[in-house]
Computed example of a mutant assay.
Amino acid sequence: MSLLEQLNQDMKQAMKNKDKDSLSVIRMVKASLQNESIKLGKDHLSEDEELTILSRELKQRKDSLQEFKSAGRDDLVKKLEIEINILQEYMPQQLTEDELAAIVQSTIQEVNATSKKDMGKVMSAIMPKVKGKADGSKINQLVQKHLS
C-alpha cells in the first residue's frame, strides 16, 4: 500500500473517530505530497520522494519543538509532540544505536576516511543508506566520534 493510500485510509478513520490532531497532520502531509508532485510534474511520487517529504516535515517539527521549549511555550510544545508522534507512525523503523554505529564504521572504511577533514565524504556516502531511518544530527555525532 502506498503512503498516499495509507494516508487516505487513516484520514477516513480519523474523521470517524473525530481525532482532530491526526486529521490535521494527515491533511498537512497529503498537501505536502501533492505540492511536491505538482512541483515535480509527476502523477505519483516514488517511495524515496515520499520519504524525503515525511522526513522534511518531521525535521521542521523537531526544530520548532526546540524553539518552543526554549521560549517556554508549553501549549505549543504539547501540540508539536502530538504531531511528531503521528508523523513517526508513517516513518520507517528507526535504526538502533548499534546498527548506526556499524553503518558509520563500514562507511568510514569504504571511503578511506582518516580525519575530520573527510567528514563531508563520509556524510555524503552514509545519508543515502540511512535515509528516513535515522536522524542526521545523530549520524553526524557518531561520524565525528569515530573520526576523532
Rank of each mutant, 00 (worst) to 15 (best):
R27F: 05
K20C: 07
S55E: 13
Q66T: 13
E50K: 01
K59W: 05
K12V: 08
V29F: 00
M11F: 00
L58I: 07
S37P: 01
Q9E: 14
T52Y: 10
L7D: 06
R27H: 02
R27Q: 14
L58D: 04
L65M: 09
D75R: 10
A71E: 12
D21G: 06
I38R: 15
E5D: 14
E47N: 10
K18I: 03
L33A: 00
D21E: 14
K42N: 07
N8C: 04
D75P: 06
Q13I: 08
S55V: 14
A31H: 14
L51Y: 12
G72L: 05
A71N: 10
Q9D: 06
N35V: 01
E5Y: 05
Q60V: 05
N8T: 03
V29L: 15
L51P: 04
N35C: 06
K20P: 02
L33F: 09
R56D: 15
S32V: 02
D63K: 05
K62S: 06
E67I: 13
R56N: 12
A14C: 09
D48I: 09
A71R: 10
S55M: 11
S46H: 04
K18E: 15
K39F: 06
E50D: 10
Q9A: 10
D63S: 12
E67S: 14
D74Q: 09
Q6F: 03
I38T: 14
L7C: 02
S46W: 06
S37M: 04
V25T: 06
A31K: 09
E49N: 09
L33P: 09
Q6L: 09
Q6E: 07
L23I: 08
S46M: 10
N8L: 13
I38D: 13
D19C: 07
Q66C: 11
S32P: 10
K69R: 15
M15D: 09
K62A: 01
I53G: 09
M28G: 08
I38F: 11
L33H: 00
N17P: 01
S64R: 06
L65R: 03
K69D: 00
I26V: 02
H44T: 14
S22F: 12
E5H: 11
M15Y: 07
V25P: 00
E49K: 04
I38G: 06
E36G: 02
I38A: 15
D74G: 05
S24P: 04
Q34S: 07
L54V: 06
Q13T: 12
Q66M: 15
E5N: 11
R56C: 10
V25A: 00
